[in-house]
Amino acid sequence: MNGFLAVWRKELTGYFLSPAAYIVTIFFLIVMGAIFSLLVSVLAEGPAGVTVMNLLFGSPFFWMTMLALVPALTMRLFAEEKRSGTIETLMTAPVTDTAVVLAKFAGALSFYAFMWTPTLIYLFILRYFSADMAPPDPGPLAGGYLGALLIGMFYLSIGLFCSALTSNQIVAAITTFAAMLLLFLAGLLDYVARGDLVQAVSAHLSSYSHMLEFSRGAIDSRPVVYYLSGTALMLFATVKIVEARNWK
């Protein structure tokens, strides 16, 4: 447990000290801010058939940011340790490989969660300045943030896995991006494909429609299970890769 906490803390402080993480955070907040201001103008035109959260998470800008942000957060995690050789000191400390993998994942997830917190301020502002407008319901609000957390977990675990495959950060980032894009596009097949099977599978994978559901306040257990088990699977695979030590 000491080992887990030590690695988690190091990873988290690492993000706060790394310029890349700052750039990504600022980029993320600008995009989210832009979506919000867009939102305000939409809402100003009178009640539409959408909720605030729905607009927020349904926006393509949000998804593009997600796809860029996750690789930036995860590419360094193992690849950099391998490139610099510190993986050897890390894995010969009295901690299990599983603890190291979980700690790195927890570090990335904590920073990801931290990045989201300023968006709460946007909501607050929205509410404060548009007194005549109904505040966001707690259901969609909680659902939206839960969805962002679940999807973030899954994508970050994919990034962690890709980072464990190589000693090159750029390669790690590109593989992560490609894997996420593939998953995301597979989800969009639902809207374009014909066959029933394809559509059914696609609907299960579609983060986009999951997010729309979540941000309507409708929390279905199937996507929750999908993201949790997907994350567990990726973390398990990462532990196996790290245990194999077949890099160089």
Binding site: R9, L17, S84, T86, A93, P94
Partner: peptide, 21 residues
Amino acid sequence: CPLYGEMRVDEYLRFRARLKG
């Protein structure tokens, strides 16, 4: 002798000490 180049000496030693229990 691999080390984390971006860390400070004290910070590194503290991290390793905690990691090693």
